[in-house]
Design a protein around this nucleic acid. Structure first.
Length: 472
RNA sequence: GGCGCUGUAGCCAAGCGGUCUAAGGCGAAGGUCUGCAAAACCUUUAUUCGUCGGUUCGAAUCCGACCGGCGCCUCCA
């Protein structure tokens, strides 16, 4: 049984999708005015793991991530760079897709863009207006927060408290400082769309309400995003969608903790960020994913080089074992020995960890327990059967690779060199082994050193010498 | 001021009433293997969970106070 911590109730709840076979998820995607940073990547990666686990559990997952491609920041950037805001958005969408792919994040079912949903957005605002939740002041349309009695139910805020403590700039036009823009009147030089209130563009919050409804329906299962979106963004989405449709908007709200740097939130405005692409030049996606998976998604995580370095180090263990399994699978006899190791137990532990509000730290601990126990079994037994090894591989394929995305079996299979190269290396190893047997250590060490200089690392074990290509 | 998160070994981090003399990763120390080395693998590594009280047969886990870190209330994943 899967349980999920729901921000709405502040409790773990049993997960029951509306349709028993299909899960509908909406995750707030990027505003495409820049490369996304590694803190944003945490939300994307964690929502990817959630999605993958639901698929592991045989749900059909409809996963929607919006792209905000019209916004103040994009306009600002387009002015700075003297090119159309369309072009700015387009370029960063391309970059976004590249980075997402490098992080091994599965593609969403749909990436709806705000600019392609103007009709839906306008219709939604019209519906709110006709129900008395919106008011128009000279082409600027605002949501009337006072009309929505449940306002604050997600963030736990009371409108009174907000009014007292808020640092909201008083806008003379608005009835209430909490009211937010649904439609912004176009200013000189800005992109605009036609609407019943005149030329303008949508506010940020309404996009998500309109697009989630369009692609997932008026009520759907899971809505996820960063902690900082709880208020006001998600609160406003609820206000818009529930006021317009008179039904519950979302059943489960999931929020991700921040990635901090020196215990401070990583953010564009503080300037203390690294882009995901920078980090991807230093570490493989698997290391980044493991580093994130080793902390629960809801808590804060302090980002550092050390964090990624130790994750990468840990990953080598997993890769070594996988490599060993693949190697053994080539020779292992059918019907060989089956050691006393219950793969099903690890599978069960993995599932119960993930079932408990996606406890990825526990789940990755299960993977490492598995690695240790398998290594032990391999060293204690001889002549292990092919059936055993393929069972191991199957487990890793489904869990470490399939759900957590911390293993890439194919990259281990595809050695980065051709058949000729591997034959030549094998030849040198053979010559070195002969030299060793003749106790010509000067020569054997020379071969080892020269190969190392070329990035080929030899590893002697009892029966044979193997090699590894080190990536520079 | 309001709302929320958080404090567990040298570092990162699960656990949230008994199976905890507390997972897992990094690091460190031993060991196996080896001509040597490297790698790999194995083993060990917190009687203790910010502090002080309380509840309980029993608390890292619940309650209270205090101390410390962070975030949201303005765009932000």
């Amino acid at each position: 049984m899967l349980s999920i911590y729901n921000t709405l109730s502040r409790k773990k709840e049993e997960f029951k999708p509306i349709d028993p076979n299909e899960v509908k998820i909406y995750v707030c995607g990027p505003t495409v005015y820049d490369y996304f940073h590694i803190g944003n990547a945490r939300s994307f990666i964690m929502s990817d793991i959630i999605r993958r686990y639901l698929e592991y559990k045989n749900y059909n997952v409809k996963f929607v991530m919006n792209l905000t491609d019209v916004d103040d920041k994009i306009i600002k950037k387009s002015i700075e760079e003297k090119r159309s805001s369309n072009k700015v958005a387009e370029d960063y969408i391309t970059a976004f897709m590249e980075d997402i792919a490098k992080l091994k994040i599965k593609k969403a079912s749909v990436y709806p863009k705000a600019t392609e949903h103007m009709t839906d957005i306008v219709d939604l605002i019209k519906a709110l207006e006709s129900k008395g939740y919106a008011y128009n002041i000279e082409g600027n349309v605002f949501y009337d927060v006072a009309k929505f009695k449940d306002y604050g139910k997600l963030s736990g805020k009371k409108t009174d408290d907000l009014e007292v403590g808020a640092r909201i700039e008083i806008n003379e036009e608005k009835k209430n400082p909490l009211d937010f823009s649904l439609w912004k009147k176009a200013k000189e030089g800005e992109p605009y769309w036609d609407s019943p209130w005149g030329n303008g563009r949508p506010g940020w919050h309404i996009e998500c309400s309109a697009m989630s409804c369009k692609h997932l329906g008026e009520t759907f299962d899971i809505h996820a995003g960063g902690n900082d979106l709880i208020f006001p963004h998600h609160e406003n989405e609820i206000a818009q969608s529930e006021a317009a449709h008179d039904k519950k908007f979302v059943n489960y709200w999931i929020h991700f903790g921040f990635l901090n740097i020196n215990n401070e939130k990583m953010s564009k405005s503080l300037g203390n960020f690294f882009t995901a692409r920078e980090i991807l030049k230093l570490y493989p996606a698997e290391a980044i994913r493991l580093a994130f998976a080793q902390t629960h998604y809801g808590g804060p995580l302090n980002f550092s080089d050390d964090l990624l370095a130790s994750a990468q180090k840990g990953l080598e263990k997993l890769n070594n074992l996988t490599e060993k399994i693949l190697e053994e699978l080539k020779h292992a006899p059918a019907g060989g020995v089956l050691p006393d190791l219950e793969i099903s137990e690890f599978k069960q532990n993995f599932e119960s960890a993930m079932d408990d509000d996606f406890n990825t730290p526990q789940a990755s601990a299960v993977i490492f327990d598995f690695v240790r126990e398998v290594n032990k079994a391999i060293s204690e037994n001889q002549n292990l059967g092919a059936e055993f090894y393929s069972g191991l591989l199957e487990f890793l394929r489904k869990t470490a690779e399939g759900v957590l995305g911390i293993l890439d079996i194919k990259s281990i299979t595809d050695k980065e060199h051709g058949a000729l190269e591997s034959d030549l290396i094998e030849l040198l190893i053979k010559l070195r082994t002969d030299a060793k047997q003749n106790k010509n250590y000067a020569l054997s060490d020379k071969i080892r050193d020269e190969l190392k200089a070329l990035g080929v690392i030899l590893q002697d074990s009892k029966e044979k010498t193997t090699y590894k290509i080190s990536k520079n």
